[in-house]
């Protein structure tokens, strides 16, 4: 019996370590961003004249706006295509094609963000450039970001749709409803929680993505006036400037990391609580 007890203790200790990593991350982000928060306070990140860290101007607003624009734009692209894909494999595709479609979507999910970035830079940007500008702008970044988070929407919607009771669909078909009506009136409303969860998860992925956006968005810090103007997201800003940032500047970069972390964690906890209530009830 002693070995059983030590097994429990060891595995529980490992589990505690795993669970504590998140706290360690928050702790270090807080520790590193304290100097900036203490000296500048929260408001200066929104009221300063511009982002010129070397002369003490720390306005993060244009980057926050660029982050929100690219992420929400990515969802606008990924949601219809992803839900369409999920409906396709469940109701429209021949069985064999459906299996292949799922496999290819998983493949798309596994492509590294730098490879998306490279493709966007060499192939997509010149195409977007025909609309004006250099092609490295928020639109290019948004399209590629949409493609990157699409598998999340597609796979989670697929799971949600496949989990619906077969009786609902058979019953609807027995009532003489057409395929599109079944999808529109039975399937999508029935699976809306799962699909919504997929979209929210995709949003956190989009908010957290760095490399593809860094390679495609043009990285100029200015308030975007249109989708064709270049922009820099918070993530890209960290990746660009952490390498040479001096103390105060570095601390501000950690503040922006903390913001990202907080936003994403709140969304994830909200979703996991919602999932929890569904499981219980």
């Amino acid at each position: 019996m002693r070995s059983d007890q030590s097994l429990t203790i060891i595995t529980r200790a490992l589990a505690v370590i795993s669970a504590a990593i998140v706290l360690l991350i928050v702790l270090f982000l807080l520790r590193e961003s304290t100097p900036a928060l203490r000296q500048l306070g929260w408001s200066r990140f929104f009221t300063d004249a511009s982002w010129h860290p070397l002369s003490g101007q720390f306005n993060l607003t244009p980057m926050i706006v660029a982050t929100l624009v690219t992420s929400s734009g990515a969802i606008v692209i990924a949601a219809p295509l992803g839900i369409g894909s999920a409906v396709f494999v469940n109701f429209y595709a021949p069985r064999r094609l459906a299996a292949w479609h799922r496999r290819l979507i998983e493949l798309l999910a596994g492509i590294p963000s730098v490879v998306f970035g490279l493709w966007g830079l060499v192939v997509l940007a010149p195409i977007i450039a025909t609309f004006g500008g250099s092609g490295q702008n928020l639109l290019t970044a948004t399209i590629v970001l949409g493609l990157m988070v699409l598998p999340t929407v597609a796979l989670l919607s697929d799971t949600a749709i496949a989990a619906l009771p077969r009786e609902w669909i058979q019953g609807a078909a027995a009532l003489g409803m057409g395929r599109s009506a079944i999808v529109g009136w039975i399937v999508l409303p029935g699976a809306r929680r799962g699909i919504g969860g997929g979209i929210i998860l995709a949003l956190t992925r989009a908010l957290g993505e760095t490399m593809a956006v860094l390679m495609l968005a043009g990285n100029i810090v200015e308030m975007p006036s249109s989708l064709l103007s270049p922009g820099r997201t918070l993530n890209a800003n960290i990746a660009l400037e952490l390498g040479y940032a001096s103390a105060g500047h570095r601390s501000v970069l950690f503040v922006s990391g903390l913001m990202l972390m907080l936003v994403v964690s709140v969304i994830v906890l909200f979703v996991s609580r919602r999932e929890g209530t569904r499981r219980d009830g």
């Binding site: 669970a19 991350i25 957290g208 972390m261 906890l269």
Partner: peptide, 28 residues
């Protein structure tokens, strides 16, 4: 209770943006 909370903190960890891992790794 233990498993539920471990799992919840892992859910949050799964959502942490990769650049934040970069910041953390650099600082820690």
């Amino acid at each position: 209770w233990f498993a539920r909370n471990v799992r919840r903190s892992l859910d949050v960890l799964a959502g942490v943006p990769s650049i934040v891992f970069g910041l953390f790794g650099n600082a820690f």
